[in-house]
């Protein structure tokens, strides 16, 4: 464990909690892409099946359970409890254009052709593009609530911090996982546009609004 990985995990946890609390407290999921949240629930489900097969540490197990639990709770709030506030007209990204290619790639490029490893690879590739429906929805509505931008910032920063974690682990442990690194770079690049808007607008107290 190193400082980049720990702060990355905490940033990820913060993002998940911020979103869950935002929906729960405001009793509304306006502006939130349910499709992205379904993809994240799928990412955690396929990645954390090893909860059933191997124990790494209490930290590892408890964080995985929290992530999976919050992901499904968020999907439940969006599609069940506060369904009336779900903005389906703007959440129109075709997720099959993500899941199918990612699924195919996971079969072609992986570390080991075993079910658990292919599912883990699928989850790594899927996570790198899972935010696209949410970013697409913001571009369609032309704006995002400030709390939503904080959620996205924490979510984007988490994987950027993991990039530093991988540099650290390569240098000090000789460990590297090319699949996770390449997917992590792609994932972080997809946030760059949002990072620019967040830093130049939201941090200056303005609302995040895109030229619609």
């Amino acid at each position: 464990m190193n400082v980049f990985r720990l702060t990355g995990d905490l940033s990820h946890l913060a993002a998940i909690i911020i979103l869950l609390l935002k929906i729960w407290k405001s009793r509304s999921c306006a502006g939130i892409s349910g499709k992205s949240q379904i993809l994240f629930a799928l990412v955690f489900t396929t990645r954390y099946l090893d909860l059933l097969t191997s124990f790494i540490s209490l930290y590892n197990t408890s964080m995985k359970i929290i992530y999976v639990g919050c992901a499904y709770a968020t999907v439940y709030l969006i599609y069940a409890k506060f369904r009336a506030t779900y903005d389906g007209n703007h959440d129109t990204f075709r997720v099959e254009f993500l899941v199918v290619p990612v699924g195919g790639l996971a079969f072609l490029v992986n570390h080991d052709f075993s079910p658990l490893e292919i599912l883990w690879t699928f989850s790594i590739y899927l996570e790198s593009v899972a935010i696209l429906p949410q970013l697409f929805m913001i571009s369609k509505t032309g704006e995002a609530e400030t709390i939503t931008t904080h959620y996205l910032f924490c979510l984007g920063v988490y994987r950027a911090l993991y990039l530093f974690n991988w540099i650290w682990r390569f240098y000090f442990e000789g460990f590297f996982d090319m699949i996770a690194i390449v997917a992590g770079v792609v994932q972080t690049i997809l946030y760059c546009d949002f990072f620019y808007l967040y830093i130049t607008k939201v941090l200056k107290g303005k609302k995040l609004s895109l030229p619609a």
Binding site: D9, S54, W120, G174, F175, F176, M178
Partner: peptide, 10 residues
């Protein structure tokens, strides 16, 4: 690379 069997990252 020196990939650990178990993926120890979240």
């Amino acid at each position: 690379g020196t990939l650990t069997e178990d993926h120890d990252e979240l």
